[in-house]
Amino acid sequence: MNSRQPAGYVRGGRGSVALARALASQVHPVFMLPPLACSLFGAALAGSFSLQLALLHTVAVFAAVYTAHLKDGYVDFHRRDEDEDHPLTARGCRHALVAATTLFAVALVGVWLFGGVLAAALTLPTWVIAYLHAPQLDMTPVGATAGYPLGIALALLGGYTIQIGALSALPLAFALVLFILLSGIKLVDDAKDLAYDRSIGKRTVAVVVGRAATRRGATALMGLGLFLTLALTVDGVFPPSAALAPLVFAAVALIALRADDSLATMLLVRGSYLFLAALVVAVWFRPLSGLGLPDITVLGPYTYLATELAFGSVAFLALARVGAVSRALTTIALLYPVAYLWDWYTLTVGVFSIPMRTGVELLGIPVEEHLFIVVVPAVVLAIHETVAARHNPQGV
């Protein structure tokens, strides 16, 4: 704990200008912008919205996140000696916390009066999470990982609810996707402080399970978030152009996950900005709403065969890239008899039919099904071998 403290509010400065600079330094745009953007995104999801209500809710969210930044800086510098410097004295931090909390309380009353009880109930936990982030929540694996993503999800739900006074499946689905995706990013972020966190007894996921397992968990969570975005788009919950958002984020993630924890965090956070921006465009402008899916049945009886050749080529290239073609072929050869009997039986008893095929049969099943038995395991093995090669580049 820093025992020698100046008597005023600012360390190393005096006057209103120094105080204003010190307070402004606690606005961290990288972490402040996503919750504010999600509050406005929630309002956009509601359709035609009131700008005044949207701004009222963003003020509440700003006050909550600012509280988190103040409390985190106060704990890390004045209590843990984790940070090398802080512009505010301990007294300045405490008074600023009171001011931020007061601003939040006033905004929360406004949310309650103009947006209803449900909007206020969804907004209040954002401040609770912010205030308890340090030194309570950030000392546990769940709290350290899920606190910030949960606050962003609540910001989105509150921004939506203040507009219409109720919730629906659409904002809940978006909140779930963002919560999962950002939890994955937070795992990577926490891993960069592994050594220090372990030294002070902070039990982040990285401390508990190690850096390698944390990276795998982060990749799985981010992958799940992207898959849910695609699945909910296919299901009609999200507008069609929302399917582009996972492609934008995946392009960044593929680069980020090869970098060290600090650089990966920086890239992934900015990738989440692009992801959210793509979702905003999808919801607000709906650019692909008038377009249908490409109709590849113009290929006629060669439709099924063409898709198999396309996916099979991708699988072969991926296997060749990691030198796993022979291993994959061995596994597929052993699997083939079982898959062949299964396929023959299900076709014979009428479990399914294949209309877009050539009509050529071999050994009692369509020639396309023989390729299917090879292509599907090849795709699975290509993904497995690629992941294994990334985690074990020496092959040991």
Score class of each variant (00 low, 15 high):
residue 255 I to Q: 12
residue 125 P to K: 09
residue 198 R to F: 01
residue 133 H to D: 06
residue 242 A to K: 03
residue 9 Y to P: 01
residue 243 A to K: 04
residue 343 D to R: 05
residue 219 T to G: 15
residue 171 P to T: 10
residue 108 L to V: 06
residue 210 G to M: 07
residue 161 T to R: 02
residue 323 G to W: 02
residue 317 L to E: 09
residue 396 V to T: 12
residue 150 L to K: 01
residue 217 G to D: 03
residue 101 T to L: 04
residue 386 T to V: 10
residue 243 A to L: 10
residue 253 A to V: 03
residue 137 L to N: 01
residue 182 L to M: 13
residue 222 M to I: 09
residue 204 T to W: 05
residue 147 G to L: 06
residue 381 L to Y: 04
residue 58 T to G: 03
residue 251 A to W: 13
residue 297 T to F: 02
residue 235 D to S: 15
residue 41 F to I: 06
residue 56 L to S: 08
residue 146 A to R: 00
residue 308 E to S: 07
residue 170 L to C: 03
residue 269 V to Y: 14
residue 261 D to Y: 08
residue 171 P to R: 10
residue 190 D to C: 10
residue 258 R to M: 02
residue 216 R to A: 13
residue 112 W to E: 01
residue 380 V to P: 01
residue 30 V to F: 11
residue 18 A to Y: 01
residue 214 T to G: 05
residue 195 A to M: 04
residue 177 V to M: 07
residue 185 I to W: 00
residue 267 L to R: 11
residue 188 V to K: 11
residue 23 L to Y: 00
residue 89 T to L: 05
residue 125 P to E: 04
residue 262 S to Q: 14
residue 303 T to R: 09
residue 200 I to R: 15
residue 136 Q to R: 12
residue 347 L to S: 05
residue 347 L to K: 03
residue 304 Y to C: 12
residue 102 T to L: 14
residue 178 L to W: 14
residue 337 P to S: 11
residue 197 D to K: 04
residue 2 N to H: 13
residue 350 G to S: 09
residue 245 A to I: 04
residue 316 F to P: 02
residue 153 A to N: 08
residue 372 F to D: 01
residue 144 A to M: 06
